[in-house]
């Protein structure tokens, strides 16, 4: 096979959210919820002072139980801070007022954020694209470590995020997101053929996440998410991270 060198396609910041237990909700609510997701994201961007960025999405796609969008790579730090906290606040506000479509069942989301080159096959904003960064974003949002964050926390934790290693280095470790790097907890992700290090971030942790940290020492599953009272002490590293997280609030 002949191979020729090519120029890199443009770098984009990729952002995907997935609704927890989307399929567990009443089928009649699915359409309503699918319609609500971009509206909630728009309000979170607005709340964060990023209304313009929301309008300048490079491309976007409904994913059925979520939403996928690409932004200019320069936006990456802002997608982490202040957007993640704004999305948590917006979700909590709606849940606290019983406004989530699904009647009383609180709306909770996972988010994944990556950065990388993306080939755009079509100029339309909803056109197809390809690229490892896009695959990575979808793998990350479905990965067990970020799923476990929501099953191991209470309903006040409305958002759990996972950030690719490259996004972490470019936006957090570099200082551009103006956050303490130790708010992010490293984790190994394995899904299908994908294997990588990534970073977990929870704007408002609760339940077992406070007692035991973001990464469970033993496989999560049998134990219910609530009742941190009955849990043993936290691991020193993660509790330090959380103490700092709370000191900042």
């Amino acid at each position: 096979m002949d191979r020729h060198p090519q120029v890199l396609p443009p770098y984009r910041s990729l952002f995907v959210v997935d609704v927890k237990d989307f399929n567990g909700r009443e089928g009649s609510r699915h359409a309503e919820l699918t319609k609500d997701i971009p509206q909630i994201l728009r309000l979170a961007f607005e709340r964060a002072g990023l209304a313009q960025a929301w309008q300048q999405q490079r491309f976007h796609r409904h994913t059925g139980d979520g939403y996928f969008a690409g932004f200019d790579s320069a936006m990456l730090p802002l997608l982490l801070n202040p957007l993640l906290s704004a999305l948590q606040d917006e979700l909590l506000h709606r849940n606290a007022r019983g406004l989530a479509a699904g009647h009383g069942q609180p709306l909770r989301m996972r988010a994944a954020i990556t950065v990388g080159p993306v080939t755009e096959f079509a100029k339309r904003p909803t056109g197809d694209r390809s690229g490892d960064a896009q695959i990575e974003t979808h793998r990350l949002v479905d990965a067990d470590p970020v799923r476990n964050l929501l099953t191991r926390s209470g309903d006040t934790t409305c958002l759990a995020a996972i950030v690719s290693e490259r996004a972490y280095h470019d936006a957090v470790a570099s200082g551009y997101s103006a956050e303490r790097p130790d708010l992010y907890v490293p984790v190994e992700v394995e899904a299908k053929s994908y294997r990588s290090r990534a970073f977990l971030r929870v704007p408002s942790p609760s339940g077992e996440l406070l007692a035991k940290g973001f990464v469970a020492a033993e496989p999560a599953g049998s134990a219910p998410a609530r009742a941190p009272d009955e849990r043993r002490g936290a691991t020193p590293t993660t509790s330090t991270v959380l103490d700092k997280a709370y000191a900042r609030r």
Partner: peptide, 8 residues
């Protein structure tokens, strides 16, 4: 056993 819920 509601200390956790109260924290929430």
């Amino acid at each position: 056993r509601a200390v956790g819920r109260y924290a929430d």
